[in-house]
């Protein structure tokens, strides 16, 4: 990974002329999109049937099982992987911009731990039916955000951003303790493995109906984020400054924040805890395409989709038993994060 990163990062720090020629930028973003589409198509043929790693395309003409496999299992899963990566990376970009802090991701506002608690609660006390687990996860993801927001208003310490992050840490810790408690009381033979698998994260259970269920929310949320991408730059400024530029800082932040959390809650509800995409992809996008979210946000979406897709391909192909996706994204994401930090120190203020 490191030689690629180094070569591409050089582009973003290149002198004025190269950085600002819009044609170059658009082209490279389009190429990234083409790359994602190609990876998407290729992923349909990647897998362990009939033998790893690839299904010969001509086999689709004759093998009915292969047709059903590609259309009913791999296609929804591949699309869900892209949607998952895009939603997490988009939400990560939004949170980093509006909190003016490059070190946050959806997990920071109690969203992820809230979802985990909701899923575990449903598995232990209600039922492990998919829609109940997902609904409960989504509900508690929003509850996590709401609680963080409420606490941040009650805190009397530091600025709004710092308060929100502190409140998020407290709420995450609370839900995390709740998850621990649920794990402790769960039936070790039936329920505990379910909880653990959900916490590890993965897309093995994705079917068309599940994809259809989350599609409207995630597409609307992604649309809102994309349309407001230039505005994100303004929302990264301090309140009074943003106001002086004609922005309603609180209202607009709440709007994009809601879109980000809705997308995150929807994809987490079907995929479980898949970490690090929301932190690392916005970083990578800014390194490659500059900080202006006119380009950084679309780039983060494409990179997030691509990364999630490739990780999921590896997760279902490398071993006979599936590797949980969350483990792969965390492993690669954390390694990439360290590599990026080694190359260039990060400035955090506020």
């Amino acid at each position: 990974m490191s030689p690629d990163v180094r070569g591409l990062a050089a582009v973003s720090t290149a002198p004025a002329a190269a950085r600002l020629a819009p044609r170059v930028r658009v082209d490279s973003l389009v190429w990234l999109g083409v790359l994602l589409l190609a990876a998407l198509a290729l992923s349909l043929f990647v897998g362990r049937y009939p033998a790893p790693p690839l299904l010969a395309p001509e086999r689709l003409l004759t093998d009915e099982l292969a047709q059903r496999l590609v259309l009913n299992l791999r296609l929804p899963r591949v699309l869900a992987a892209v949607l998952l990566g895009m939603s997490l990376a988009g939400a990560g970009t939004v949170l980093q911009m509006i909190l003016g802090n490059p070190l946050v991701e959806p997990g920071f506002l109690g969203v992820s731990q809230g979802a985990a608690f909701g899923a575990a609660l449903s598995i232990v006390f209600l039922s492990n039916v998919a829609w109940l687990v997902q609904g409960s996860a989504a509900f508690f993801a929003f509850a996590g955000l709401g609680l963080s927001y409420f606490l941040a208003h009650r805190l009397r310490y530091g600025g709004w951003v710092l308060r929100l992050v502190l409140a998020g840490i407290a709420v995450s810790a609370l839900f995390s303790a709740g998850v621990g408690m649920l794990k402790y009381v769960a039936d070790p033979l039936r329920q505990l493995p379910e909880i653990i698998f959900w916490l590890l994260g993965g897309l093995w259970s994705i079917t068309w109906p599940q994809l259809r269920a989350i599609l409207p929310v995630t597409l609307i949320a992604l649309f809102v984020m994309i349309r407001m991408r230039w505005r994100l730059n303004l929302l990264a400024l301090e309140d009074a400054t943003a106001f002086s530029l004609g922005v309603a800082p609180t209202r607009e932040r709440v709007l994009v924040l809601t879109a980000a959390v809705a997308a995150t809650a929807a994809v987490i509800s079907v995929a479980g805890m898949v970490g690090w995409i929301g932190l690392i992809m916005p970083h990578l996008a800014r390194r490659l395409y500059g900080s202006d979210s006119r380009r950084a946000l679309p780039a983060a979406l494409l990179l997030g989709g691509l990364f999630s897709l490739l990780c999921d391909d590896a997760a279902r192909t490398l071993l006979a038993g599936e590797i949980p996706l969350g483990i792969l994204t965390s492993l690669l994401g954390a390694a990439a994060f360290m590599a990026l930090m080694m190359k260039q120190p990060l400035h955090v203020s506020r």
């Binding site: 004025a16 950085r19 600002l20 911009m97 003016g100 802090n101 490059p102 730059n233 303004l234 990264a236 400024l237 301090e238 400054t241 530029l245 004609g246 922005v247 800014r286 500059g290 900080s291 202006d292 990060l346 400035h347 955090v348 203020s349 506020r350």
Partner: peptide, 19 residues
């Protein structure tokens, strides 16, 4: 003004056009 993100000057000054 603390902004942790690395904008180019043109991108940054362009924000003034928002109104």
């Amino acid at each position: 003004e603390h902004n942790p993100f690395e904008y180019s000057l043109l991108e940054y000054v362009l924000l003034g056009r928002a109104p």
